[in-house]
Amino acid sequence: MGMKRILIIGCGGAGKSTLSRELSRTLNLPLVHLDYLFWKPGWVQSEKAEFKQILKSELKKDSWIIDGNYARTMSLRMRYADTVIFLDFNRWICTWRVLKRWLFNKGGEQAVGCPHKVDFDFLRYILKYPQKSRTEVLQLMKSNKDGCQWITLKSSAEVEEWLRNGLPQEGS
């Protein structure tokens, strides 16, 4: 199956942005970070209708890699995707990675004008991810299993192995 429209989803700290950048380089596909579409400078949220309109225009393009969860638009994005990569990492690993990024990688932005931050709400989201968001993803996976290819990766080692051996070769 071709990989021209790829969603990368998973808990905060699982490595969605890192994997999406790597795939964008490897597969030569345009990269769209949902955070860049949703957040305005100073952590100001886009209006829901505005965000959905911008997202729809991206989805209609011939190819892309979109990283981010944004549950309320997940089913919309799945209608356009040919591949969903679900980074199903342990929440404690994700929490550690987020804290490490915040503590040691000062600088950088989550979106334009939105410096990386860690707050209680974000940590709570990560810790509750298995009970709420992961369950929703698994339900979507069951209900969309015929619509697109699902790839579930559970660790950094699995991601590395898949990058080495699981990507389609050029021309396939």
Rank of each mutant, 00 (worst) to 15 (best):
V98N: 10
P41Y: 05
A111V: 03
S155R: 08
Q110F: 03
P30I: 09
G166I: 08
D146T: 13
L7N: 13
G12E: 09
E58R: 14
Q139W: 05
W64H: 05
S20N: 06
L55Q: 06
K106Y: 10
L7G: 00
T83C: 13
R79G: 09
T18P: 00
V118Y: 13
V98P: 07
H116W: 12
G171E: 08
E170W: 13
K117L: 13
R77E: 00
G15N: 04
E109C: 06
A111P: 06
L37K: 10
K142G: 00
V84I: 13
K100A: 12
Q53I: 01
N28V: 11
Y125M: 13
N28G: 08
P130F: 04
I85R: 13
R134T: 00
S75T: 06
S75Q: 09
V44N: 12
K154T: 07
L138N: 04
A49Y: 03
I66G: 00
K132M: 06
K61A: 03
E158L: 03
R134Q: 11
I54R: 15
V44H: 11
F104D: 10
K56G: 00
V159A: 01
M78L: 07
E161I: 02
G2I: 14
D88Y: 08
K145N: 07
L99G: 11
D146N: 14
R164A: 12
M78K: 04
L27T: 07
R134M: 01
E58T: 01
A81L: 00
R164W: 01
R79I: 00
E58Q: 15
S24F: 04
E50Q: 14
K132H: 12
W162T: 05
Y36V: 04
N69D: 02
Q149V: 04
K4I: 03
E161M: 09
R134L: 01
G10Q: 09
K48N: 06
T95I: 15
V159L: 02
S57M: 09
N69L: 08
K154R: 15
W102Q: 14
A111D: 06
V137M: 11
K56F: 01
G171K: 12
P41F: 07
G12F: 01
G166L: 07
D62M: 04
V159R: 10
S155D: 05
G166C: 05
L87C: 06
P168C: 03
W43Q: 05
I66F: 00
L153W: 04
K128C: 09
I54P: 00
I6H: 02
K48F: 00
F89V: 11
N69P: 00
Q53R: 14
I151F: 03
R25C: 08
G13P: 10
E161F: 07
T26R: 15
W92N: 12
K132S: 09
R21H: 14
K4M: 11
V137D: 01
R21A: 12
E158M: 10
E22V: 14
T18C: 03
I9G: 04
D119W: 08
T73S: 12
S63H: 10
G108K: 10
G171Y: 10
G171S: 07
I8R: 10
E22G: 01
L99C: 15
D35M: 02
I6K: 02
L76M: 13
F104G: 12
G12W: 01
Q139D: 08
K40F: 04
K48I: 02
I126D: 11
K60Q: 13
E160R: 14
K16L: 00
A49T: 12
